[in-house]
Amino acid sequence: MTEREILLKKISTYKFAIIDIQLFLDTHPDDKSMLNKLNEYKKTVTPLVREYETKFGPLKKSDENNNTWLWVKNPWPWDTEDEK
């Protein structure tokens, strides 16, 4: 795996945990311990996303672009290698 893929896998692992907890909370909205867990994972993933976006380009379109529109940059999620 490339450095990009390793970092992205880490991010998607935390983001998946967040999605799964959020879905659990839809039917258990008052579960304090899961709410705490959710906030903990959100805090952990934020610096990882920042690191990824600085190195490899945006994951969401809301990010700042100065000289060039980085959103178009390869690879897209279904690409298998870091194509130019």
Binding site: L8, S12, K15, F16, L59, K60, P77, W78, T80
Partner: peptide
């Protein structure tokens, strides 16, 4: 809806 440029779980098939 807002798109995130990332799969929910990685897919990397070689064959």
């Amino acid at each position: 809806f807002v798109y995130e440029k990332q799969l929910q779980y990685p897919v990397k098939i070689k064959i």
